Simulated scan of single mutants.
Amino acid sequence: MPSATQSPEVTMLLARARAGDDAALGAAYSALYDELKRAARQQLRRMQDAFQTTALVHEAYMKLAGGAQLAAVDRNHLLALSARAMRQVLVDDARARKAEKRGGGQEALTLGAALGNGETAAVEVLALDELLSSLHRLDERAAQIVELRYFGGYSETEIADMLGISDRTLRRDWRKARAFLLAEMQA
């Protein structure tokens, strides 16, 4: 598994992208491409979605490249923004499928693997997005941990490194986020 340590090359490319070099973002994204594909593959495997791994990574890139001025300052920040972009792509796709006249029913995804300890809870992608938005209002870091873990597919150690927090703090925030999500899903 790739290390979540900083990459000076990616940081330099992101600085060039923020300065207006259009090709630099693509180069930074390319440098992280294999890691992004791994994250997308894990996410799609959990969802059992027909969305293709490469398509999800490319759509996330298009969201990042086509959006407002890129604010990523380093490798970890770009990975976090990419996880958020993947979430947005999947939510947009779920909304589009739900809006179809025929076959617009939403398949549930299981959070059992992400929630751990044998808990299983089925929730629609759109419902998960709403829950994460609610959690974000209450505890931004806890919501970011869920997003990185579930949509990014990163391990606890990788997330702790990315967020610059201890493993213990991460586990505490993860337990709090998981409890919130389970309580809201059962309400």
Rank of each mutant, 00 (worst) to 15 (best):
A4Y: 00
T5D: 07
P8A: 15
V10K: 00
V10E: 03
T11R: 07
T11Y: 01
M12P: 00
M12C: 11
M12W: 05
R16A: 13
R18A: 11
D21L: 13
D22R: 13
A23C: 04
L25E: 08
L25S: 06
A28T: 14
A31L: 14
L32D: 04
Y33E: 14
D34K: 07
E35M: 04
R38V: 09
A40W: 00
A40L: 01
R41F: 01
D49M: 07
D49C: 06
A50E: 12
F51G: 02
F51A: 12
F51C: 11
T53H: 05
V57C: 03
H58E: 15
E59L: 14
E59D: 15
A60E: 08
Y61T: 14
A65Y: 06
A65M: 10
G66N: 11
G67C: 12
Q69R: 15
A72Q: 03
V73K: 15
V73H: 10
R75D: 12
H77V: 11
L78T: 04
L79A: 08
A83M: 09
A83P: 02
A83W: 04
V89K: 01
V89G: 02
L90D: 01
D93F: 03
R95N: 06
A96Q: 15
A96M: 15
R97W: 03
K98N: 12
A99I: 07
A99K: 11
E100L: 14
K101H: 04
K101G: 07
R102F: 09
G105W: 13
G105E: 13
G105R: 14
E107A: 08
E107S: 04
A108L: 14
A108G: 04
A108Q: 05
G112R: 00
G112N: 00
A114R: 02
A114M: 03
A114S: 06
A114C: 01
G118F: 07
E119I: 14
A121G: 06
V123R: 09
E124F: 05
A127N: 08
L128W: 02
L128M: 10
D129P: 02
D129S: 10
L132P: 01
S133I: 10
S134G: 14
S134W: 05
L135K: 08
H136Q: 11
H136G: 03
R137F: 13
L138I: 15
R141S: 03
R141M: 12
E147R: 07
E147Y: 00
E147H: 02
L148R: 01
Y154E: 09
S155E: 15
E156L: 06
E156F: 04
T157D: 14
E158T: 13
E158H: 08
I159K: 04
I159L: 05
A160Y: 06
A160E: 11
L163I: 10
I165M: 12
I165T: 13
R168N: 12
T169A: 13
T169K: 07
R171C: 06
D173Y: 03
D173K: 13
W174K: 08
R175M: 04
L181A: 05
L182K: 08
L182G: 07
A183I: 07
Q186S: 11
